[in-house]
Amino acid sequence: MQRVRHNLLNRALAHAALITYTIIALFPVVIILINSFKTRKAIFRHPLQPPTPDTFSLIGYETVLKQGDYLHYFQNSLIVTVGSLFFILLFGAMAAFALSEYRFKGNTLMGLYLAIGIMIPIRLGTVAILQFMVAAHLVNTLTALILVYTAQGLPLAIFILSEFMRQVSADLKDAGRIDGLSEYRIFFRLVLPLVRPALATVAVFNMIPIWNDLWFPLILAPGEETKTLTLGSQVFIGQFVTDWNAVLSGLSLAILPVMILYVIFSRQLIRGITSGAVK
């Protein structure tokens, strides 16, 4: 009896603490979103109230959409993120297959070599990366960003994918070989479809840091044509420091795409983290 009461108390305390922290986590986001739909007066007079018919206003969004090239920035971010993910997954899976499937001289060494990048941030090579991009005439192109993010994502992708590929049954691959499938077919037709969950995990892990990165867009592609949404909103919001409606709406528009991605992929993301893929 005492034990039951004890458990109940424990659970009530856990709920109280978790609700408190959830409020702390969500409060700033909610404040930004609700105030972005209010008149300037209401933003300052009653910042904590949701918009009412009296205080509702879309003036901030009008300013932002008129001046900022949000749609274009969004498109750049989308190209960079999708392009990088494609190459991370394709090249990563190919290398992971080579490392997990074939025994060859230097296999372990190659694995270690490719793993260095898991711990050493690619940013430390920025000075030389910029020189390389200048020499290759890739400054202010989305290609430069895709290349850098591919290099950044590969080490962890190879590490995770080769763990999963080791679990693919050898019998299956050998059966394929007996049927005369080439090694490429075995990889693309037999192995890749089987590690799809792992591919999804890797994609979700890489998606958010690439989408949110400020450093490389700032250094490699700061031009108006190639601005990503993260860099674009940084510059854009910075210009409107005194126009609170515009700043709040700009922020809300930057939050929106990430939240949509999160709602779509959160289950995959959480499953990926908790399945121990990164242990």
Partner: peptide, 23 residues
């Protein structure tokens, strides 16, 4: 093996390892 490894190793070496040495 070489073909499977080449793209990853090339991109990784050119943009991760060489820049570290370049730096």
């Amino acid at each position: 093996i070489a073909i499977f490894l080449a793209p990853a190793v090339l991109v990784y070496t050119a943009l991760m390892i060489l820049p570290l040495f370049g730096t």
